[in-house]
Nucleic acid binder design. Structure first.
Length: 443
DNA sequence: TCTGGGGTCCTAGGACCC
DNA sequence: TCTGGGGTCCTAGGACCC
């Protein structure tokens, strides 16, 4: 009898780095591997990464760090300011390994990627996933978890459950779905945030299973819009969430809180010019140009609501560009229009929008493009790439910049220099149970 | 005293046009 | 007292994600 070649069911895997930023800090300090570690947001405000050991002490992701100073002191939690250059470097390494292992990898965020697992022989899902985990951890020092399921939403649930039960990989096969979803609060479903969860609870929908089995489509649509309908389909095994392929950004922003109150207009201009520099660099990195820029200034959102002040303005350039100079001039004009004396500004930001590809750019008849700009910008970008962000910048960014945010506990490690690179060979014997290599070679 | 930053998508409602 | 209807486009705001 002829064997019929079956097409295997669609399956998605999500690889997730565990407590990514904390793990990155640990790569350079192996002795922290079993100790509580947290990483703070910009301005050392909130905890944006909490290691499992720190979670056990009651530290929660997103909570303001000043509320938990006592716990941190008492339990000697290691605290780091965020170091995005380091995290970006390690993220690229993780993604590179995935690309080598699998043909269809879609990076979803700095620490996550979806992998099309449809080609994996049925029954081998967890074995394959464990091998991926092992290789990533061995070569980067970052612990990772993989969840697999018929849809991306189910894979996400699998990954959450894997972490909970301290497994490296978990496949939620159709036969296991009901039990798993009954055990999953609806708010734990990817795409159901606190707002949606509250609405669902009002209608007695508490678990992922109750949500999946809910027959009243118009109700789901009324409560959660078309997004909710799609999520319910995903839980039913019907794929409808596209994990965006890291497409070109439609908007690029750069916003920061200041390290202190800022009253001075010139300082605001410096800050905003600096943010424009960051955003234009990103714009050029994705080979785009843009036409719109908006700027906002605001006071602290946590003080008396009656004194809270925010305003913003926008300008459209005559033609799309990625010239930091043009955007900076526009941004400064906006700051001058918005500025109010005696106002304790705490945060400012800029948005660049109406982004389009640089190739196929509309040329303006009346504006002769200065041919020196493009080489200047690319020289600036390569210098800053080599020597660090902001090494070369517009004069309007200022030199003192003492409005800048706080980051007192920034780890200085980056992977820009050979002597900072991680030694990973030492880990090999322990993981694989083989004899140690002859020498510890730096990667 | 101290409370992040950078994105995307969807919808309702207003403006405008014919 | 009565005062069109349908379509499109834009924007603000709300929701979510990491």
């Amino acid at each position: 009898m002829l064997s019929i070649r079956r097409s295997w069911p669609e399956r998605w895997a999500i690889l997730d780095c565990n407590a990514f930023y904390s793990s990155c800090e640990r790569v350079f300090r192996p002795h922290l591997r079993t100790l509580p570690v947290v990483v703070l947001s910009n301005n050392d405000g909130c905890m944006i990464s909490v290691s499992p050991e720190a979670k056990l002490l009651g530290l929660k992701l997103g909570a303001p760090v000043h509320e938990v100073r006592e716990i941190i002191r008492k339990h000697r939690v290691y605290v780091f300011s965020s170091n995005y250059q380091l995290y970006g470097d390690l993220s690229r390494r993780v993604m590179r390994i995935l690309d080598e292992l699998h043909p269809d990898v879609l990076q979803y965020s700095i620490d996550e990627a979806f992998i099309d697992f449809s080609h994996v022989p049925p029954g081998d899902e967890e074995k394959w996933a464990q091998e991926v985990c092992l290789r990533v951890t061995r070569e980067t020092g970052i612990p990772v978890t993989i969840g697999i399921g018929r849809t991306k939403t189910i894979a996400k649930i699998a990954s959450k459950r894997a972490k909970k039960s301290k497994q490296k990989a978990m496949y939620l096969a159709d036969a296991d779905i009901e039990a798993a979803l009954r055990d999953t609060p609806v708010g734990d479903v990817w795409g159901i945030g606190p707002g949606f969860e509250a609405k669902l609870k009002m209608h007695n929908i508490r678990t992922a299973w109750e949500f999946r089995e809910h027959p009243n489509t118009p109700l789901i649509r009324a409560l959660l819009t078309v997004t909710g309908e799609r999520l319910r389909d995903e839980l039913r095994g019907i794929s409808c969430v596209e994990p965006g392929e890291m497409a070109e950004k439609k908007m690029i922003s750069s916003t920061r809180s200041f390290g202190r109150r800022v009253y001075d207009r010139i300082e605001l201009e410096e800050a905003v010019s600096t943010y424009v520099g960051f955003a234009c660099e990103k714009l050029r990195a994705q080979n785009s140009v843009a036409r719109g820029i908006s700027v906002f200034l605001r006071t602290s959102a946590f003080e008396d609501k009656t004194t809270y002040h925010r305003n913003d303005g926008q300008i459209f350039l005559v033609s799309a560009t990625n010239d930091t100079g043009q955007f900076t001039r526009a941004a400064i004009d906006i700051v001058r229009a918005l500025y109010r004396r005696d106002t304790p500004y705490k945060k400012a930001g800029i948005f660049i929008f109406e982004i389009s590809p640089r190739a196929g750019q509309q040329v303006d008849l009346f504006q002769v493009e200065d041919s020196r700009i493009a080489p200047l910008m690319s020289a600036m970008d390569s210098i800053n790439k080599k020597w660090g962000r902001g090494t070369v910048r517009m004069a309007s960014c200022g030199t003192k910049q003492d409005w800048r945010m706080l980051c007192e506990k920034r780890s200085n490690k980056t992977q820009l220099h050979w002597h900072d690179l991680v030694e990973v060979r030492r880990e090999v014997p322990q993981l694989l149970g083989t004899s140690p290599p002859a020498q510890n070679k730096r990667r």
